[in-house]
Amino acid sequence: MAYSDKVIDHYQNPKNVGTLDKSSKNVGTGLVGAPECGDVMRLQIEVDDFTGVIRDAKFKTFGCGSAIASSSLATEWLKGKTVDQALTIDNMTIVEELNLPPVKIHCSVLAEDAIKAAINDYRVKNGMEEIKFEESVVH
């Protein structure tokens, strides 16, 4: 199947590939997926203490082009949002933005899961309660 131009663009010029210091209190790390399933995504956010705004976001992904594009896009969207605003990013917005076909929806779900996992990691580190998310529908 052919990829959309946006997927190709993110694949060729991924935004925010990299690693943040996961021991830092300001950094939340989400690691989702599994090597046996063919996809592993690690997404990190760095939150500003005063404003609660996500100053930086980085990712690394083992997976198909759509998974790489989904995580690249997610990091772009995360930057500049508050943690609460970040919680509103859902996988279907990613699907629409990247024009993902049905078989690639789970790649976007992975990105949404990674965002949630990163936020929870940040919350726990800073003495907040973990948010219980409902199981994502599409896996």
Binding site: P14, L31, P35, V40, K60, T61, F62, I68
Partner: peptide, 19 residues
């Protein structure tokens, strides 16, 4: 771009992680 490669390079046993 691969988190697995990074872990491998850091000497982390990928089987020890609870995926």
């Amino acid at each position: 771009m691969s988190p697995l490669w990074e872990m491998y390079k850091e000497g982390i046993d990928l089987n020890s992680i609870e995926w």
